[in-house]
Computed example of a mutant assay.
Amino acid sequence: MSRLPVDVDAIRALAQILTETGLTEIEVAEKDSRIRVVRAPAQMVQAYAAPSGPGTALAPAAGPAIADPADLSKHPGAVTSPMVGVAYLSPEPSAPAFVTEGHAVTAGQTLMLIEAMKTFNQIKAPRAGTLKKLLVTSGSPVEFGEVLAVIE
């Protein structure tokens, strides 16, 4: 039985991509070789991390209204993902975000981009209001129907 050479560096690089993007599986095929790296999906609790930065702590009374992801899908101001892809909050890595929590948005204003099949799709505000909550981070994978933001 012959042993195929294993490219450990390629496996490490693919594992790093999984970590950076939040994906659970990646596969690369080249000529007659194929490398597939799979990891257990992160718990759903990790997808909704607490706000970071100074002064972002919520008062106890305000927390439950926005914090529970199950309730957010029924929120009248919920902005959901129309597709599966990767969310980006700015047009390029060094540019400022399209929107930030707490600021006013207008109907039709770009909130973020979702990359699907190498195409960047603008996700626009369905109505005017205040962006109360952004539920995704730049570079995070999103699912169809997932709540991306809440506008009130």
Rank of each mutant, 00 (worst) to 15 (best):
M112Q: 07
E25Y: 11
P41Y: 14
G145A: 03
D68L: 07
V84Q: 14
G85E: 10
I35K: 12
L23K: 02
V142C: 09
E92P: 07
K124C: 10
S140K: 06
R3G: 03
H103V: 01
S90V: 01
L23R: 05
T110N: 06
T106C: 04
T80I: 03
S94I: 00
L14P: 01
L18D: 06
I151G: 05
L58M: 11
K74Q: 12
A78T: 04
P82S: 11
A97V: 06
A128T: 10
T100E: 15
A107P: 14
S81H: 11
N121S: 06
P69G: 14
A59T: 09
E143Y: 07
A149T: 00
I11S: 09
L4N: 08
I151E: 08
K74H: 13
D9C: 04
S90G: 10
A49I: 04
E20K: 13
A97L: 09
V79G: 11
M83Q: 11
K31L: 13
L18K: 08
L4F: 08
P64T: 02
T137V: 05
V136Y: 00
V147R: 04
S140E: 13
E115F: 04
V150R: 00
T106P: 03
V86L: 11
A50L: 07
P91C: 03
E20Y: 06
A87N: 00
E20I: 01
Q16M: 06
P64G: 03
P91M: 05
I26T: 11
L134M: 15
A10L: 15
G108Q: 07
E152F: 05
L148F: 08
N121R: 05
A107S: 15
A49D: 10
Q46P: 02
V142L: 09
P93H: 03
E146M: 06
F98H: 09
A49N: 10
T24K: 10
